[in-house]
Write a protein that binds this DNA or RNA. Structure first.
Lengths: 224, 224
DNA sequence: GCCCCTGTGTGATTTTGTTACTTAACCGCG
DNA sequence: CGCGGTTAAGTAACAAAATCACACAGGGGC
């Protein structure tokens, strides 16, 4: 219970001992994968910090289609909660855990106290906001102007990390990119036809990451 | 020079008299319409507050297409500047004045001082962040899932305000919505064919705002 | 008038989204 | 093991939107 503060250097050097002790009293939450952290309209009065695991924050349209806005991962904060609270708006996005998640919920009053007392904490919070905003702007650009094959190639590479295998469904990729499953199926089939990937149920194997990277970089000339 | 603080109640009640006096020393900028406030990569070390006028913040793609991210209007702050600075990232968006603009630039050091000293100021800043973020999320949704005719109808109504006339070009509307000029031309032609608007060079006249509002609300059944 | 630039109209083609299915793989269970 | 039930993936046909390519019109400056 005391170790987690070390993960947040910005919290570790709060000067005020009173504040510091109250920080150690915050609630730690454990969530199983697939749990809904919040949904549009939920009254959420806490500033959330993810210690371990990954949370998807996504927007669901009326028609049921979804798009991933961003992920909250170890050491990151979920700004949307605070944002909606402060702006006094309903917030339409929802958050779902992708893995088992360990998080702390800091009550709003304590959050404000920390903001007043600690410049490092403020900077931590601001940096989080800033990164989300630039991330969202890049997302707007990708959705508005980007080609789907490029976005898919990029998504495959990101998700695979170092490896060349990827356990995911077409629907899952479609949800991440905000498109329809059929579109992903088509594109993956095309990738398979040109030898870039192999497809199995619930799995994609990357055979030619170099060429994928070329497509991901936006280089044209890949529609024969 | 003293009147503007009244526009920002959150600044007006800064307790610290020292801080307060330094606030009154900030630089006021006057910008003509069409001026570029910042562009991707510009080193910008100020927190900007718009006193009067309107600034477009837009993203320009490599291919030259643009999309309006949001407007900064009287009494609002341009969070992107701060955001990029704090996150240490280049920021890809650019800002251009739409009207004559009067703004104050608060140096970063002073900004941090005010954040530490004044809870109202903090809340003002946070509210700004929060509203931008929810705005950007709505934009992502509109771009990813929204139909273009709906978005165009909404845009026409917003821009016209109370009136029924609108001095703007098709290209201008396309830029705002992040699409191609031809798409807007075709949709407007369709609107004209069904008696919703009349078109003139550089001008759109709204003849049936009720029906436009119906389309803007997302009601289907408008493509015969 | 004539040129030139900006704004608009249109057709053809490609990409993406939608609808409505079929087929295939996996899972648990009798 | 075979049998349904469920979820994942393939497919075809069509609609919407973006893209490309070009024609043409209006207006201002010369």
């Amino acid at each position: 219970m005391s170790g987690w503060i070390a993960r947040f250097p910005s919290l570790a050097d709060v000067e005020d001992p009173l504040l510091r002790s109250s920080l150690s009293a915050v609630r730690v939450m454990q969530l199983p994968p697939g749990a809904t952290v919040f949904r549009g309209g939920d009254p959420c009065r806490n500033y959330l910090l993810v210690l371990e695991g990954s949370v998807r924050v996504q927007k669901v349209s009326e028609s049921g289609r979804e798009i991933l806005l961003y992920r909250v991962e170890s050491g990151q904060s979920c700004i949307l909660t605070t944002a909606c609270l402060l702006a006094g708006e309903d917030y339409a996005a929802e958050a779902v855990t992708e893995t088992p998640v360990q998080a702390v919920a800091i009550p709003l009053s304590l959050f404000h106290a920390a903001m007043g007392a600690s410049r490092p904490f403020r900077e931590f919070v601001f940096r989080a906001y800033a990164e989300r905003i630039t991330g969202l702007i890049l997302l707007v650009e990708a959705v508005a102007f980007g080609r789907m094959d490029v976005r898919l190639a990029r998504c495959l590479l990101e998700r695979s990390g170092d490896g060349t295998e990827l356990n995911t469904t077409h629907q899952d990729l479609a949800t991440e990119l905000g498109t329809a499953r059929e579109v992903i199926s088509r594109l993956l089939k095309e990738f398979e036809r040109t030898g870039l990937v192999r497809l199995q149920r619930g799995r994609v194997i990357l055979d030619n990451t170099d060429e994928l990277r070329r497509i991901a970089s936006g280089a044209g000339g890949n529609t024969p």
